[in-house]
Design a protein around this nucleic acid. Sequence first.
DNA 1: GCAAATTAATGATTTATTCAAG
DNA 2: CTTGAATAAATCATTAATTTGC
Lengths: 228, 228
Amino acid sequence: MKVHHFARGFWEVQEQPFLTLGCKRLRPLAPKLPITRDICDDTTNQNKILGVSITQPFDLKSFIRPETGRRKIESSDDHKRVSAQVETNPGGTRWNPTQEQIGLLEMLYRGGMRTPNAQQIEKITEQLAKYGKIEGKNVFYWFQNHKARERQKQKRSSLGLIHCSRKPPSIIDTSSIPITAGDMGREDSPGKRKCRPWTFECLEMDKKYCKEEEDRTLKLFPLHPEGR
Amino acid sequence: MKVHHFARGFWEVQEQPFLTLGCKRLRPLAPKLPITRDICDDTTNQNKILGVSITQPFDLKSFIRPETGRRKIESSDDHKRVSAQVETNPGGTRWNPTQEQIGLLEMLYRGGMRTPNAQQIEKITEQLAKYGKIEGKNVFYWFQNHKARERQKQKRSSLGLIHCSRKPPSIIDTSSIPITAGDMGREDSPGKRKCRPWTFECLEMDKKYCKEEEDRTLKLFPLHPEGR
DNA sequence: GCAAATTAATGATTTATTCAAG
DNA sequence: CTTGAATAAATCATTAATTTGC
């Protein structure tokens, strides 16, 4: 295997004091539920010990500079959450999308967007923030989940119909969806097809930001390139 | 809007010492287990069609403010990348860990760390940056991959040995590695064991940063909470 | 010896699953 | 039961050690 035996030499190099053993455990324990996840991966902890909302949502602003504390308690500029929406982030739980947000997201989805890149997420988040609290990761997750669930819905659907007709399992998806208009770019199904531009005014401005050129590399999160 | 401009603080911090000694990455090679690769994982794909490297690397510094675009194309600036080292981020491709980095990461892994949270990643990255260019996402990915691959290695191994002896698949792997001391926290093998504190001096400073409180929520990436 | 070709290792992404809030 | 959130598995892609032909 790798076995980079940097044998000697390596440890000496350490100008830093590392090696301190026995330090405090950052993420201790916490048994997960009854489940038996095969692997151990201690990460299962999460004792939400401190009653305080530990699960602060991810905050890009702060992640860069931890010391910026930030209690997003945010009495928040209470722009009236227009929508009879919640999202007041009471204890700081999960994102609770507003109707407008969902609507816009679905529009983008139908427009063909599947895995927006960092820049797009940034823009979308900005826009959606007008309708309620939201963060980039929420947008990211929404697309991930929506895509996955549409996919399985289709699969299920096609499976249910499979015995009705001899449909090759290839294009499963598409068929069933009753998408209305502008439904071009289908899923990223096997028969992948280059999606057409999903629309969203804010994203039109890309040029403004991407002066360089396409700049296909910007990414908000490490886990989703803009496509490959 | 929010437009996080996280001032260029954190990421820039990386002073550029790099050039970590001439030690090269020992590199792959090495017989993996002669075992039969399980099905998938063919990895042999790669129709590297376009010669050009489209895949621009991710650049956190720029993702915040797109305008810092950057064309890593670099139309082959001829100067020879002198450094015997890699990681000069020549065309700016993927992270090429130095031995020290790998060594430290493995130490942390053996110490029990599996899915560091944002803060930890931040710290680790900071430390590892002393030995070569590196970004938070690299650390994140490293743990993901390492964990997954250790897991499959074990699985493969246990499967291969299963008929030889009734050995619990627990400690297979490592054997080969001649790591010296402090090797506690075993893998995340089935026989889950609460890993002991992986050590890393830098993580001791947590207090300093988490002034707020534990602030167990900071996340670097949306995809890895500190546990659930 | 050296460079193109091979290939194992592994960095980076995407997709599938699972967990859990509401 | 729906779906936001997170993790694990599967994939894809690039790199460098090794192999091969000269």
